[in-house]
Simulated assay, not measured.
Amino acid sequence: MVESVIEVEVVYAAVDRQVLLSVAVPVGATVRDALLKSGVGVEFPELDLAACPVGIFGKVVAEPSTHAVQAGDRIEIYRPLLADPKEVRRLRAAKAAEAKARNQ
């Protein structure tokens, strides 16, 4: 009997480059299985695939080692933000207020 396989995508965007890998996994494979089979850990050795946050189509997967993938899923590997967006907005607003005060 032939084992059924499904296609999923694994994507990762590093600071300097991004990859989109198509992976064939058996039906019932988990998110973690697909990540390991994709080879993304070889291409980006700095990634800790056991601990990095991941999601499917923008929704975080809490338990990647137990969450089964579906055909056509896009598994996204998230990296930490370089700057907190709220902090950046706060600094930009403070800078704009300071410039406005100097011009008055």
Rank of each mutant, 00 (worst) to 15 (best):
M1N: 07
M1R: 10
M1T: 08
E3T: 15
S4R: 09
S4G: 01
V5A: 05
I6G: 03
I6V: 12
E7K: 02
A14Q: 09
A14V: 09
V15N: 11
R17W: 03
R17G: 06
Q18N: 04
V19S: 01
L20C: 11
L20G: 06
S22E: 11
A24W: 04
A24P: 00
A24N: 10
A24Y: 07
A24C: 06
V25K: 00
P26E: 15
V27N: 01
G28A: 11
G28M: 10
A29I: 09
T30V: 00
V31G: 03
L35Q: 00
L36V: 14
L36K: 10
S38A: 07
S38N: 06
G39H: 06
V40H: 01
V40I: 14
G41R: 02
V42P: 01
F44A: 08
F44K: 08
P45W: 09
L49N: 06
A50Y: 11
A50I: 07
A50P: 03
A50C: 11
A50N: 15
A50M: 13
A51F: 07
C52K: 11
C52T: 15
P53S: 10
P53I: 06
P53D: 11
P53R: 11
G55K: 02
G55V: 05
I56N: 01
K59F: 12
K59I: 12
V60L: 13
V60H: 06
V61R: 04
A62W: 05
E63W: 02
E63N: 08
P64D: 11
S65E: 15
T66C: 12
A68M: 14
V69I: 03
V69C: 00
Q70E: 12
G72D: 01
G72R: 01
D73W: 01
Y78F: 05
Y78Q: 00
Y78S: 00
R79C: 03
P80E: 09
P80H: 05
L81V: 03
L81W: 00
A83E: 11
A83R: 10
A83I: 09
D84S: 09
D84Y: 04
P85E: 09
P85R: 09
E87Q: 14
R89F: 02
R90M: 14
R90S: 13
R90P: 05
L91H: 15
R92A: 14
R92S: 10
A94Q: 15
A94I: 08
A94K: 15
K95S: 12
K95E: 14
A96D: 12
A97P: 05
E98K: 15
E98D: 14
A99M: 11
A101D: 07
A101T: 04
R102F: 10
N103S: 14
N103F: 05
N103C: 08
Q104D: 06
Q104G: 08
